[in-house]
Amino acid sequence: MDKKVITLTVNGESHRLEVEARTHLADVLRDELALTGTHIGCEHGVCGACTIRVDGAITRACLLLAVQAEGAMIETIEGLSETGEIRDLQDAFRNRNALQCGYCTPAMLITAQDLLLHNPTPDRATIRDHISGNYCRCTGYQAIVDAVDTVAKARQAAGERP
């Protein structure tokens, strides 16, 4: 099967890539662009470890063929780290030990940021609900909920300051 040529903007950089139609975006990010912070845990959309942002919306990279993403703006953990957009979440995860093996963490952070962008004042149940599609086998989730809760409150407090 002939490869397809696609153009993606990934973390602000434009890439012209030749990909097989069958290749999902997570593999393209990892194998073609060496952005290995996007992890693969199941490849059938269940574990959430490959969650990235596509045109601003969180998306399972394993459930999106790279060809479907033609022309899209992709953001991965590497990009979100460099822009500093989720610095506070990263700090909170570190300080609260909200990660152990770290494999779910990039996707968990991106999912948490998605929640806070849409709902700046989530309660704990809402936080749990929003991350309920992201497997974490190490922490039991409580530390993650704590970390997101801390950041939500800190952002609120910062927003309220004159």
Partner: peptide, 14 residues
């Protein structure tokens, strides 16, 4: 943890 929260870990699968 810093490298892990930035997606800069090195897992064998990487």
């Amino acid at each position: 943890l810093e490298r892990l929260v930035e997606g800069r870990g090195t897992y064998v699968s990487d």
